[in-house]
Design a protein around this nucleic acid. Structure first.
Lengths: 197, 197
DNA sequence: CTTGTCATGTAAAAGGTTACATGATTAG
DNA sequence: CTAATCATGTAACCTTTTACATGACAAG
């Protein structure tokens, strides 16, 4: 029941949302706490409505069905946060690939790492842009600060990944390069610059 | 077919493994590229054997069935690495919780963040320990270096997370603290110390 | 008047978890 | 001889993806 809590979380900000808007959130690669396919979102919304966690707030002319949280929905969100243990399970396709990469020849391996660097750089730009442009709108100050903090985390993680991937190319090229020093040095030497800098 | 490639990757190191050993890998919280439940691993192994991706190398007295890669298995691993696009999909329960946390009162929120810091510190210790103790055994040098590099990445990511969580407590306590500066400063000021230091 | 975006679904299949069941071997 | 660990599975259920289908509205 994980998407359920992601939807509750998205609706908890008070702004009514329809399935299409929620899908936009769950498919934005740079707003990446959770993702889901459209069909899953629509069927989950129907289930949640039947359970009384959300209710229809408005039907726009364009046949969009907007939902808001009910009191039960808000209670469930709180229960989840305070009662359920966080799930630290990880399924990281990218790292799995990097772990398997030694079976390839060096040229191919380097190409793959470079492709990943390109991807991460794109993400870095997108996040930096988001931080630079996002102004505090009608939202609650706490909501806004919280979301902004998460974006800073993602930016830092992306920067770490890029430095590390660059180090990986170095140790791939040079079989004598010390793994720990090469990577640890890179990770600490390149500070995360302030998003506005 | 994601677990399939995780298993191919685990067997690609040449050492025959049985279902139980693979399960140990996929359930070790600190060896965390992928995880899976025992029943899933056993049924996937059966399927893979039928498809000819792996074959039984030995049955030990203790009724354990050891598997090794076939040529087809190795080819499939290579095809996956070079032909399939990396899956950058993310489902991060922890970040989703942190994004929703503003609905709680400050005391409860701080407790949750502190619990997460405790968890991350435990992981940091485990990873540091792994890096300190793991010696290069019979394994190929490239395999060993690759795995070690990934451990360094995980250690760096954990360290980033801890610093960030500490910063999050600061901005939670002080509604006037600037989000960007508070977090960005923390992220760049605390370098990842060398694992042997 | 046609293409793109908005908007919502259904059905089938694949991927993954949980609960349960079983039994051998080893360490204390 | 008893508990822990090793070792493998089945069945039911839940979660997620993929492919398909539909149609309104807006912009060019």
């Amino acid at each position: 029941m994980a998407l359920r809590h992601a939807i509750l979380s998205a609706l908890s900000r008070g702004i009514p949302k329809n399935g299409y808007e929620l899908n936009a959130i769950f498919n934005d690669h740079d707003e990446r706490a959770w993702n889901a396919s459209p069909s899953q979102v629509y069927s989950e919304l129907t289930k949640m409505q039947k359970l009384g966690l959300i209710e229809v707030s408005e039907r726009t002319e364009r046949r969009a069905t907007n939902y808001v949280l009910t009191d039960d929905g808000r209670a469930e969100l709180e229960r989840w946060l305070t009662q359920d243990e966080p799930d630290h399970t990880i399924r990281d396709d990218v790292v799995m690939r990097l772990l398997s990469m030694w079976i390839l020849d060096e040229t191919t391996a380097r190409h793959l790492i470079e492709a990943e660097i390109t991807f991460q750089r794109r993400r870095e730009r997108a996040l930096r842009n988001k931080l630079d442009t996002s102004a505090q709108l009608a939202e609650d100050a706490r909501v806004w600060r919280n979301r902004r903090a998460v974006h800073v985390l993602w930016l830092a993680q992306t920067a770490t990944m890029i430095s590390w991937l660059e180090g990986l190319i170095t140790i791939l090229d040079d079989p004598d390069a010390p793994v720990d020093d090469t990577l640890a040095a890179l990770l600490s030497s390149e500070p995360v610059s302030s998003p506005r800098a």
